[in-house]
């Protein structure tokens, strides 16, 4: 699929990617590219493999076919140590936050700094405090992950994801299950951090309103294919039936309401027999 992104500014380039789990094809020959310094959203119904895509970009899963390049390096041809070096420059925000439950908030954010830098303890402390201040949770530094609300856990995880000042942050369903206030906070944070730190953001989401508010470019995935892409305006006005069904939340359309099954009447008749 052709994209209108200039090659020099692209940070992630996916070419002819295919991936399947068991017999189910999750991606069928998709290509997309993510521009540097922008917020790119990948949208689609649940179960279309949006999270899988992030794991493929991060090198945690291997594609069946095709290539994924991050910052011009083919993720799946790197040696383990090279992959780890690349991952230090990629932050990822998991849906659950994925904070380590045996560490408190401060230690969680300090962890990547302690593991990957030779900075002094006082330097690490200052860095952690600035990151926590950026997400508004400096006062929560001594809490344990089980004392945090879902929204707070995600903000802490965001502070941890940006601890090493990465070039790119990937957000896995950042808006799911948040109350309106947390939602507003997260939308603002993602937008602000992206411009303040010069990040590249990749958001995987099915929350249309929030994503449209902050995304610069959107890809819509369905059934293992890219069914539409463009700016939020273009996506809203897209004439693709898939995109329209997704954006307007129609119960039936190209994505069927019914899971594939045999004929309804036959099925009923069979039970009576």
């Amino acid at each position: 699929m052709a994209t209108n992104v200039d090659l020099d500014t692209e940070i992630v380039s996916i070419q002819n990617l295919s991936f399947s789990r068991g017999d189910k094809k999750i991606f069928n020959d998709i290509s997309l590219s993510i521009p540097r310094g922008k917020i790119t959203a990948i949208m689609g119904p649940s179960g279309t493999g949006k999270t899988t895509l992030l794991k493929l970009i991060g090198g945690q899963l291997y594609p069946d076919k095709g290539s994924i390049k991050v910052d011009k390096k083919n993720v799946h041809q790197l040696k383990r140590s090279e992959l780890y070096t690349l991952r230090k420059r990629m932050g990822m925000l998991f849906q659950s936050g994925a904070l380590l439950t045996d560490l408190n908030v401060f230690e969680n954010v300090a962890l990547p700094l302690k593991e990957h830098t030779a900075l002094s303890d006082s330097m690490i402390r200052s860095l952690v405090i600035t990151k926590l201040q950026a997400v508004g949770l400096r006062g929560a530094r001594n809490l344990k992950p089980n004392e945090l609300s879902g929204g707070m856990a995600r903000r802490i995880a965001l502070a941890r994801a940006i601890a090493l000042d990465p070039m790119m942050v990937m957000y896995d369903e950042p808006f799911t299950g948040q109350d309106p206030i947390s939602l507003g906070v997260l939308v603002k944070l993602i937008k602000d951090l992206n411009s303040a730190l010069g990040l590249t953001s990749v958001i995987v989401s099915h929350d249309i309103d929030e994503t449209l508010r902050i995304a610069d470019y959107i890809y819509v995935l369905s059934g293992g294919k890219i069914v539409g892409h463009g700016s939020p305006e273009q996506i809203k006005n897209s004439d693709s039936k898939w995109v329209q069904q997704f954006m307007n939340g129609h119960a039936d359309g190209p994505v069927h309401f019914h899971y594939p099954a045999n004929d309804y009447h036959e099925d009923l008749f069979e039970t009576q027999q």
């Binding site: 994925a98 439950t101 593991e115």
Partner: peptide, 21 residues
């Protein structure tokens, strides 16, 4: 449970080897 709550994946993505840590 660490695996189920994505803590192990999270570590890998932070370039921290969960086997080591």
């Amino acid at each position: 449970l660490m695996k189920a709550t994505e803590q192990l994946s999270g570590m890998e993505m932070m370039a921290i080897d969960p086997i080591k840590r």
